[in-house]
């Protein structure tokens, strides 16, 4: 098994999602509130993982554009759970050494006095390890 195949297997395992159930209807992407800001859209995450093209997803920052709103999960007619696959790709990226997407030093210039703590802890949970 190549490294890429191992990573794909790991993504399927930790997400608990099965991309092979997808019938390519595109409803997940149609439901996604942020698809226009993503290089690869939710249905492409599913397709690329199924077809061994994970490297494309790992080179893109699309996984960091997902807001984990779960619209794609709720509206997928095949219960594929695209957001869980996207989260597993995001984790594959940030679990690498020195690969945090958001650095603590960047925080001070991004906050204003109304920003809730919830935003900071959520961003750290999604973007750093």
């Amino acid at each position: 098994m190549t490294d890429l195949q191992k990573q794909i297997e790991n993504i399927k395992r930790i997400s608990g999602a099965n991309p092979e159930k997808c019938m390519r209807c595109g409803k997940c992407t149609a439901a996604c509130p942020n698809y226009s800001e993503m290089e690869y859209h939710p249905h492409q995450f599913v397709y690329f993982i199924e077809n061994g093209q994970l490297d494309r997803l790992l080179k893109s920052d699309s996984a960091f554009r997902c807001m984990t709103c779960f619209a794609c999960v709720e509206r997928c007619p095949r219960d594929v759970k695209p957001a869980k696959l996207i989260e597993a790709v995001r984790l594959t990226l940030i679990r690498r050494k020195d690969s945090n997407y958001l650095k603590p030093d960047e925080i001070p210039q991004k906050i204003d006095e109304d920003l809730p703590q919830q935003a900071i802890v959520s961003a750290f949970r999604k973007y750093t390890k």
């Binding site: 395992r13 930790i14 997400s15 608990g16 984990t68 957001a83 869980k84 989260e87 597993a88 984790l91 703590q117 919830q118 935003a119 900071i120 802890v121 959520s122 949970r125 999604k126």
Partner: peptide
């Protein structure tokens, strides 16, 4: 703190 967002991966 609950962490703000749920992490969906089962190994988290």
């Amino acid at each position: 703190c609950c962490g703000g967002v749920y992490t969906t991966a089962q190994d988290e």
